[in-house]
């Protein structure tokens, strides 16, 4: 029995969520502020990873960042390593798989920040950047946290896309969900049970966190009314 898959999954999910967050926060803000048809279309596009089968998504990623692709070659030149069949590849795959959950939660939270509050802050002379940090982010942090929790759980549990991009190399790219499959196939029921149990525990913790956040939101809502 080895704990490496758990360690790898946590690491991959952490960086995948971080990567997603860096992209999702400004994008979500842009989606709530600008209503150009192209932006709306791009907004809808961010849901695509939720609908596409993870294997198909993984396949596209493989084409996009594989050793033959421009991005893959650039990455190889810069780092001397390949993106595919590496834990970084797994980060990319699970980040894209979990991205719709992250961005929809953040977008939803930001769209609930009253335009009057933003207008009031701007009229008091503060730059849009300052208003974003002092008004928009603090007022949508719960949405951001719940997006992060969901995306982290989703990234940690990804199987299809990660397998396509990063493969199943024990000790290198074998994450939890892949290890469960692997243990199952090789008849190691003890390992499979153990890993499944941990995955379930993580899922329950995330659900509990989301539940607590929701309670708090309701509580504050009541107070405001």
């Amino acid at each position: 029995m080895t704990l490496f898959p758990l360690y790898l999954s946590l690491k991959v999910a952490f960086f995948a969520t971080l990567l997603g967050l860096i992209a999702a926060v400004p994008l979500a803000w842009a989606f709530t502020q600008y209503h150009h048809p192209l932006i709306k279309w791009f907004n809808s596009l961010t849901t695509l990873p939720l609908i596409l089968p993870p294997t198909v998504l993984g396949y596209y990623l493989l084409v996009l960042v594989g050793r033959q692709s421009a991005i893959g070659q650039l990455y190889e030149q810069l780092t001397g390593k390949t993106l595919v069949f590496s834990w970084q590849g797994a980060v990319l795959a699970s980040s894209i798989v979990s991205f719709p959950l992250l961005i929809s939660a953040i977008r939803n939270a930001m769209s609930h920040v009253s335009p009057d509050l933003i207008a009031a802050a701007r009229l008091l002379g503060h730059s849009n950047w300052h208003v974003f940090w002092t008004i928009v982010l603090p007022l949508s942090w719960r949405g951001i946290i719940s997006g992060v929790a969901l995306a982290f759980a989703r990234a940690m549990g990804d199987f299809g896309a990660t397998l396509m991009v990063a493969g199943n190399i024990p000790g290198v790219t074998q994450t939890m969900s892949i290890a469960v499959y692997d243990a199952m196939m090789s008849g190691d029921i003890v390992q499979a049970n153990f890993l499944a149990l941990i995955m379930t525990a993580v899922a329950i913790i995330v659900l509990f966190l989301l539940y607590r956040l929701e309670q708090k939101v309701h509580h504050e809502h009541d107070r405001n009314v």
């Binding site: 009253s114 009057d116 509050l117 207008a119 009031a120 802050a121 701007r122 009229l123 002379g125 503060h126 730059s127 008004i135 603090p138 007022l139 405001n224």
Partner: peptide, 20 residues
Amino acid sequence: APPQQRRIGYVFQHYALFPH
């Protein structure tokens, strides 16, 4: 001119106080 540079005070119907 952006709202920041207009030197205009605005009082909203529903106050628009920053709740946090």
